[in-house]
């Protein structure tokens, strides 16, 4: 059973109107459970749109999207996935803990269980000291970590992330990448991750999906296979070869 199965999906925004946009053309993509997939491609090629299709926040114009062998809509209703957006999107009237508890509240968890899980998640993203703070009191990177903790709080089998580290400085970014890989390994979650950074894509994923400019299609997929990552990986010649491979593929689609 595939974690994600997309067949012939297209997306046209505002069809028939003067502002019609053909965002995605004929996407076919299958993702196996436990994979870490990154989507990379020129700005406006439809990466966020594809992620929203998987999340069933929008529906495809044609074609089908299946998550965990059921329609994406059903997967959303079953809360099969957690999502982290490009902006952290925390609610500032809630404390850090209460933000992480939000999905658990909606799922009817008891107060004690929510507290316990939020504490665990804060431990995971190393923010235990800030449980009672409000988001506006945190740095951008810390907010992003809270958002990731919130997305992981109910142990979804699928994690959808749209440039979650885009706003972070290089050091924090690399640290967060290692954190994310650790969490991914510990939880066995399937991840679909959108990024603009080639090294980030190569460092994180088992497979890099390169998309063409609008209307977005999948130009190529590149298996990475670098094994367990560590600080040494970033200096590994094999790592650089993969970076070059992805860059070449991106150059080709931009022509």
């Amino acid at each position: 059973m595939n974690a994600i199965d997309i067949r012939g999906a297209t997306k046209v925004f505002n069809p028939g109107k003067s502002n019609q946009v053909e965002a995605l053309a004929e996407i076919d993509l299958a993702v196996e459970p436990g994979e870490f997939i990154t989507l990379i491609g020129p700005s406006g090629c439809g990466k966020s749109t594809l992620l929203r299709l998987i999340a069933s926040l929008i529906s495809p114009s044609t074609g089908t999207v299946q998550v965990n062998a059921k329609p994406a809509e059903q997967a959303r209703l079953d809360r099969d996935y957690g999502m982290a957006f490009q902006t952290a999107g925390l609610f500032d009237w809630r404390t850090v803990t209460k933000n992480i508890e939000l999905p658990l509240e909606l799922m009817g968890w008891s107060k004690g269980n929510r507290r316990r899980r939020a504490a665990e998640m804060l431990e995971l993203v190393k923010l235990s000291d800030f449980s009672k703070h409000h988001p506006s009191e945190l740095s951008g990177g810390m907010q992003q970590r809270v958002a990731i903790a919130r997305a992981l709080a109910f142990s979804p089998s699928l994690l959808l992330m749209d440039e979650p580290f885009g706003a972070l400085d290089e050091m924090t970014r690399e640290h967060m990448q290692d954190e994310l890989l650790r969490i991914w390994k510990e939880t066995g979650t399937t991840v679909v991750f959108v990024t603009h950074s080639i090294p980030e894509a190569v460092y994180l994923s088992t497979r890099v999906v390169v998309m063409s400019p609008r209307p977005g299609t999948i130009a190529s997929t590149i298996g990475v296979g670098l094994g367990d990552r560590s600080a040494a990986t970033r200096d590994d010649p094999a790592f650089f070869r993969k970076v070059t491979e992805v860059r070449t593929a991106l150059r080709k689609v931009e022509e």
């Binding site: 999340a55 926040l57 079953d78 809360r79 999502m83 909606l106």
Partner: peptide, 14 residues
């Protein structure tokens, strides 16, 4: 609320 706040609630099927 910004659109992504609404989308977050939608993603939880709220």
């Amino acid at each position: 609320p910004r659109p992504e706040n609404q989308e977050l609630m939608d993603s939880y099927a709220a």
